[in-house]
Nucleic acid binder design. Structure first.
Lengths: 236, 236
DNA sequence: ATGTGATTTGTACTATCGTACAAAAGATCA
DNA sequence: TGATCTTTTGTACGATAGTACAAATCACAT
């Protein structure tokens, strides 16, 4: 209803709608949903507050549209990479390829979408931490299929590990992934400048390397069969 | 100035101040800082909005006091456990003990503080995601020493791994830890009910097991010396 | 050029926010 | 009991939130 596909893009500014989406994405991803006002977004996009209402009706609607824009392409990319990874013969190589297929699209731009997947992934991390309702619904119904596909693929490479353990470890992977995008400066700080937390390529390599090893850890039940648990119990 | 240490605790309700702190902690940890109003907190604590201002002056002051309450004890507990872990002879056992010393206090109650460290850790996760300023300052100056101590201890157990890699992997550990507390229900969902994401003891075991393996992964530089990187490059 | 529909602007409304402050209530001890 | 200090209550104020809506402005087909 909103858009008339004429030869040229209409509107005074070249696609104000996109500018608003980009500004909102950036602000939400760095400050959370509730800390950012519609007026903040409008100002960052060089738009009028009323424009936001016009294009997206409500603030929730704006967030919803951001998700709609990214979920499809990112899942598509992941599916392609996962399919390719599944064809890798060597089991060890395949595991790494599968992990990489999960991680790479989250860090890098989803081909056509401006600004890249990193910003969107960070947004998802923040919304998940805030317990945002709109995000929760979309996420569960959009990403769970993909998550299951990855879990299955990993399970194929590690048939001796119980599925439960795979789920836990892939959960840890997502947490690590999120956190790397949320506070990259912490890596720079703790490494005393020797590492750049914001360097996506490096973060990916580190994450893939660590995660592959984590997946390959022995299963919990059969872990360290004849060794005592050291030092502390886990309940207070 | 505020408190007079008489024989009995004063105030109509048995320690309204504590009730407000507990309510704020819970609400902040589940909804974020900006989504929770002072009135919400007061209502949850069975108090009057004015009481919050009286005890903590501002909303930021309330958050600050929550941090003050927990940072000391949790760091103390971690130091104790870390010291004990350092005394473990076997190098593999020591690594596990060190990781456990880092993880356990974050999941379980800090001995004397009601409600436990899990709630506070979740709060930290959420504040970090929201980029909260008050939290950022406190965190950097309170936890970085502890983080360095742990990184050093882990490096001792794995002298052949570059410090940079250890930093990255401990960053992943913290991310995984945070995420486990932020969305435990995702684990239950993805495991189709076979695992309980909210079971702290189980989460700890899974996290420790996976993390120890991640730390033990070969260093990045020397990783897979004669093998091609499979399938995808890391930049778009 | 002019009318028409899409977009942008400006502004206003109501609700709620954090905070301040005076009055009430409770506790403590001479 | 009455004086004094601490705590709680009730209320109010200015700022800002999300959203609605009419007027102004634009792009474009005729």
């Amino acid at each position: 209803m909103v858009r008339k596909p004429t030869s040229k893009e209409s509107a005074r500014k070249p696609n104000m709608r996109e500018a608003i989406l980009a500004a909102a994405e950036e602000l939400f991803a760095t400050n959370g949903f509730n800390a950012v006002s519609v007026r903040d977004i409008a100002q960052a996009a060089g738009a009028n507050p009323g424009s936001v209402t016009y294009h997206f009706k409500t603030k929730d609607g704006l967030l919803l549209e951001i998700y709609r824009r990214h979920c499809g392409p990112m899942n598509l990319r992941r599916s392609e990479l996962l399919a390719a990874a599944r064809r890798v013969r060597d089991l060890q190589d395949r595991l790494e390829a599968v992990v990489r297929a999960y991680v790479v699209p989250a860090f890098t731009s989803g081909s056509d979408l401006a600004g890249g997947g990193a910003r969107f992934t960070r947004l998802r991390a923040v919304m998940s931490a805030e317990g945002n309702e709109v995000a929760r619904k979309i996420i569960a119904q959009t990403f769970d299929d993909t998550s299951h596909a990855f879990i299955d693929a990993i399970h194929e490479s590690l048939p001796h590990i119980p599925r439960t353990d795979i789920v836990w470890r892939s959960h840890f992977l997502l947490g690590a992934l999120y956190y790397s995008l949320v506070t990259p400066e912490r890596v720079s700080r703790l490494s005393r400048g020797e590492a750049d937390g914001g360097d996506a390529a490096n973060a990916i390599e580190q994450l893939v390397q660590a995660t592959v090893a984590a997946f390959q850890a022995p299963a919990l039940d059969q872990a360290a069969p004849a060794r005592r648990r050291p030092v502390v119990s886990s309940k207070t």
